[in-house]
Structure formats: C-alpha cells, structure tokens
Amino acid sequence: MSARLVDIIVSDTEVSAVEAVIRRHCRRFWQETVPNGREKFSCIVQPRYVERLLDELDSRFGSSAGFSVTVSALEAVLPPLEETPETALPVADLPPPTRLEAFFSRDRISTDEIHDDIAESIAIRPSYLLTVVLSAVIAALGMRSGQVAVVIGAMVIAPLLGPTMGMALAATVGNAEMAKRATATLIVGATAALAATYGLGFLIAVDPTVPELLNRSIVSPADVTLALACGAAGVLAFSRGAALSLVGVMIAVALVPPLAAAGLFFSKGYETLAFNALFLFATNLVCVNLAGIAMFLFQGLPPKSWRMTGGVMAVWGFVLLLFLGVMAGRIAFGIGSESLVEQVLDIIIRPLG
C-alpha cells in the first residue's frame, strides 16, 4: 500500500512540541511557514503509523486554535520507505506489536480514513433510495429469469454496503451515533427494496421454482459460512482502501437478492417462501456483522470499550446460535430443500386441480 502525506498546520508557538510528536511516527517531513502566524509540517507516513500519529496529535493539539490535519494517499515514494523489524518505529509507553499484529495491520488504512469512507454512505439521501430500488429491481428481474450475470450486476451496485460496514465499525470502535445512523439507513434501504420488488411482482410473472429464486428461500449451514466469509472478506478489502464496488460484490451477494426474492414472493402470495427469504436475509446480516467486527478487531482497530464491543459481539453470536437452532430443527424434522420444492409445486398445482 502507498504511503500517506499528512499535512499538519499549527500555531508557531507549538512548533517544537509538534515536531517531537512527528519524529516518533515518521522518518521524512519538512516544514514551511504559512500566513497568520502558523507553521505547516508535511510528513510522509507509512499507513501503519498514520492512526497513532493522528491520535497523539488530536489528544495534544485538538483544542488548539488553528490546528488542522489532512491526510492524502501517495501513489509512489522515492526512495521507498522500507519497513523491517529493525527499522520499525517504536510506540512510546506501549509494548511493540507482535509479528502477527504487525502482519495483519500493516496494510490497513487508519480508523479516521475508514470512518470518512463510511460516513458519507450512511446518510439517507434520494440517491441512496434510488440506488437501493434499482439494485433490488435488477436483482429481482435477474433471479426471475435465471440470469446470474444480471444478479451480479445488482451486487456491483452494492447499496447496502455502507450501512452494513457502518454497523460493524460502530460496534468495533463504540460509536453509538454511527450505529444509530447506519441501522436507520439499513432499515430504510431494506424497506425500500421490499416495497419496490413487491410492486414489481404485480407487473411480471413469477415462477417460484426457478433455481435463482428458490435458492433464496432455503437457509442452510453453507449460507452461514458464505455470509461469514463475505463479512470478513468485505471488511478486509474495505480496510485496505479497496473500491466500494469490489467490496460490494462480496457484501451484496448476501443481502440484496434475498430481499428482492422476498418482495416478489409476497406479491404473489407465497408467504412461506417470502418469510424464508427474509430469514436468509436476517441470517446473512447477523453473520456479516459478526465477521466484520471480528475482522476489524483482528486488524487492530482500537475499541473504545472492550466490554461494549464484546457485548455487541455476544448479542450477534447469540442471535446466530438461535438461527442455527432453527436450521437444525428444520433439518431434524425433514424440512429441507427437497420438501420445500414439493411444497412449492403443491402451491402451484393445487389451484389448477
């Protein structure tokens, strides 16, 4: 990952204190005078050191008049900044990271950068609602006709990516305000997706036995594994600064299609299939959040309170265990995919007989 350029502006009375902080977190920096009695430091910082630099600057100078910090990505740095155990910059008053911690956090962008990437996507705007509706309609039409490529198109749009990542990040760092906004945005988006596909169902014919649709009404342990992998892979890519559309392929595969299928099923009167699709959506949402929080922690994001973060993870884990219990009960009583197909065929054939 490329280095970051951190520009710091402070009052000229704090130059010595700021320089002492900078030297603890980066090896290359330069200073220049700017108007109004202020000084500017430009620092080339490796990604793994950005977060601790910002934290110390904010704690020491955040309330100072004229203080500001901006961070931007650099495409290349010459000569390159080599990082080895021998050249690693120590952290004052903290034990050095283990090799495992350093390995998994070295490519991660800072918490502030992750927060800024997510903050814009958890606001309820007309563009967000329109994107949700279009994504759900595309997914519904793709599943209805059995066209996998069209369903993938809905995944790339990824409207539920921001709220989902926002919920996981908020639980990790203990940001209650972000958690409320992300949850509200997700609920509004899910409702819009259901409403759009419910209305669409009155305009098109729907065959519930089409595999792309029927598969969204079947919940199995394999779906739990898929959702956990999606959540972990999505957070891993997101925290490395990957494009939202690429991460969306990992996340939307677990969230958008079940919602679209549920809307179609409700419109045609297949309530059992619709509730099964919603159950798949809920299961996937729990798994994505649980795996997302675990991956954020694994990469070294600092929780505000381990008790709070652990409590949220415990709640998600308890809900997942309940869902797994429901799945086990269905399997024990023989309510599997084969019996579900028979029920669907019975629903269709009964009116004809």
Rank of each mutant, 00 (worst) to 15 (best):
M1H: 15
M1L: 12
R4G: 12
L5R: 14
L5H: 15
I9M: 06
V15L: 12
V18N: 04
V18A: 12
E19V: 15
H25R: 10
R27I: 02
F29M: 08
W30A: 08
Q31F: 07
E32N: 13
T33K: 15
P35E: 07
G37H: 14
F41Y: 15
Q46H: 15
P47I: 08
Y49D: 04
V50A: 08
R52I: 07
R52S: 14
D58W: 05
R60F: 04
R60N: 00
R60V: 06
G66R: 04
S68D: 09
P80G: 11
L81A: 14
L81K: 09
E83F: 10
P90E: 15
R99S: 13
R99T: 03
R106Q: 06
R106N: 10
H115W: 06
A119F: 12
E120N: 11
S121E: 12
I122F: 05
I122N: 01
I124S: 04
R125W: 09
R125S: 12
P126D: 00
S127H: 07
V132A: 09
V133I: 10
S135M: 08
S135I: 01
G142W: 00
R144M: 07
S145Y: 15
S145P: 01
V150H: 04
M155L: 08
V156H: 11
M167C: 09
M167I: 14
L169S: 04
A170E: 04
A170V: 00
A170W: 01
V173Q: 02
A179G: 09
K180C: 01
T183V: 03
T183G: 05
G189P: 00
T191K: 02
L194S: 02
A195Q: 04
A196E: 01
T197V: 03
T197S: 06
L200H: 11
L203M: 07
I204K: 07
V210Q: 09
P211F: 06
P211N: 04
E212I: 00
I218P: 04
S220Y: 11
A222F: 15
T225K: 12
G231W: 13
G234R: 10
V235G: 06
A237Q: 02
S245R: 09
S245G: 02
V247H: 03
V247D: 03
G248Y: 09
V249T: 08
I251Y: 05
V253K: 12
P258K: 10
A262M: 01
G263F: 13
L264M: 13
F265L: 02
K268A: 05
G269V: 06
E271Y: 10
E271T: 13
L273F: 10
F275P: 00
N276D: 08
T283A: 13
N284E: 06
N289C: 15
A291W: 01
A291F: 02
G292T: 02
I293F: 07
A294D: 05
A294T: 13
A314H: 05
V315R: 13
V315D: 05
W316E: 12
L324Y: 06
R330I: 00
I331M: 10
E338D: 15
E342F: 13
V344H: 09
L345R: 12
L345Q: 09
D346Y: 14
D346Q: 15
I347E: 13
I347T: 10
I348E: 12
I348P: 01
R350H: 14
R350Q: 09
P351Y: 07
